[in-house]
Design a binder for these strands. Structure first.
Lengths: 251, 251
DNA sequence: CGAACCCTTGACAGAAATCAACTAAGGTGG
DNA sequence: CCACCTTAGTTGATTTCTGTCAAGGGTTCG
């Protein structure tokens, strides 16, 4: 299995500069599995026995009470998730389910912590990764508190555009109902708000998004590098397309 | 100055089990200063040159756009803040100001990172601290997304009560307007909601809070260990009184 | 004593959730 | 291949919630 995931997983920021021995030990202890869509990988509240890495596919992190549910992030390759619970040996605070057929690498938390103890560079990489996750969550929270729905949507569209190289058009990477939940609104509200954004420089047709008036949209979003970040930083940066993916840009 | 902060700072989780030499180096490189109330310690967007530690007093972390502002957390002794920006050498995502006269220990980020490189135990402590901060922020976000205003307030009151040992009565640790901002609502709304909570088992008179019907209040809050956490975990766990403070409990 | 400032209260406007109905697309099984 | 079912998305009507504006009480501090 080490041979099966050579470049992709090895190129994780988490493993950058780390001794091959450390990485190999982690990978040997881990499991590499494929899951169909809509499989629950993690139940919030369960003990965090494994660090998860999305190698292929797409995973939703969500949380809920008995009658409500909220999407917290969508993780795309190659990224880790629930690192914090793993290193603390604490219960998961979020559940995870596959949105597509996904290939997941699972590394036992025990081995993760052992690797941190023996390999200082790896420990520091974990620090950087966690700090990125933290900052990503801070941004998300700031977004929720400081912007209203239309502003959140506008900023999301601009962020997507930037991730693809400031393209004027792209395809939404996830279903709208998930987007709505991620941004803290109902699907109905998202639908209406999307329609109304046409007046502010952003037209939506199905999954296709076209930014028709960037300055106007930026004015609405009140775009700020502190809220939206010039850098992706974290692996789980939210509901985003972190890579200039093959077919996401449409214009 | 090392002599001036022996037990308190040394007892930080961050320094637990760390070699005296590492700690001394960090403290020698740091500055220990007192600030009057309402001094801005950190401006969001500025480079993170120092890790900050609240030794005495109280510090508010907040974020804002030009016309809006939101309290993100209130930090009380003995706790660190903006650790994530420090280790990543990235701009602060939040501003910080003193709410009371406060004693702040500032450790240069450069030294922090150097200590991580030379002392593995310290690096792992940073991991744990950051993971705690992350989880704390996740909880805060879940709170915002999954509960409405009255539920958020009810759960806050129950959490405060628990931190003081499940006392039925206590004094609010911060001004209501800050509480309101922290919980994502306007002061007017908080005021009205607090009044209405009398029907649900929680009476408020000025700064004094008395839980009159705990089961009823818990039912309203939908209290769950995953949302509210049995453990404080992070140093900046929000707007809370993490210690059984001298005069906070009133009943 | 006056000036801020926090908090509260009321009236109102605006935003968002809810409920319900309908369309469209994709998958299943006959 | 088609009828059927499920589900995402949209739209409209309505209610509920929340923010805004305005005013007044109380406290602290110079």
């Amino acid at each position: 299995m080490i041979e099966a995931i050579p470049a992709d997983v090895r190129s994780l920021q988490l493993f950058e500069g780390v001794a091959d021995e450390t990485v190999c030990n982690l990978l040997r202890a881990g499991y590499d599995q494929s899951f169909p869509p809509l499989v629950t990988l993690i139940q919030e509240g369960a003990p965090a026995d494994f660090l998860h890495v999305v190698v292929e596919g797409m995973v939703e992190l969500f949380a809920g009470t008995k009658d409500r549910e909220a999407t917290m992030a969508v993780v795309r390759p190659i990224s880790t998730f629930i690192l914090a619970a793993s290193v603390r040996d604490a219960p998961y605070l979020m559940s995870a389910r596959t949105l597509q057929r996904s290939r997941i690498l699972m590394i036992p938390s025990v081995n993760l912590r052992a690797a941190m103890a023996t390999d200082n560079r790896f420990a520091r990489n974990v620090v950087l990764e966690l700090a990125g996750c933290y900052r990503s969550m801070v941004r998300h929270t700031k977004n929720l508190k400081l912007r209203n729905t239309r502003e959140r949507i506008a900023s999301y569209m601009l962020r997507q555009s930037r991730l693809l190289g400031n393209v004027p058009g792209f395809i939404l990477p996830v279903e709208k109902r998930i987007l709505a939940s991620y941004m803290g609104m109902t699907p109905e509200n998202l639908s209406r708000a999307l329609k109304s954004l046409a007046e502010d420089g952003c037209k939506i047709d199905g999954q296709r998004v076209i930014i028709t008036d960037r300055p106007k949209l930026e004015a609405l979003a009140g775009l700020s590098p502190l809220l939206d970040g010039p850098d992706p930083e974290a692996s789980q940066a939210g509901v985003s397309l972190p890579l200039p993916a093959t077919d996401a840009r449409i214009a």
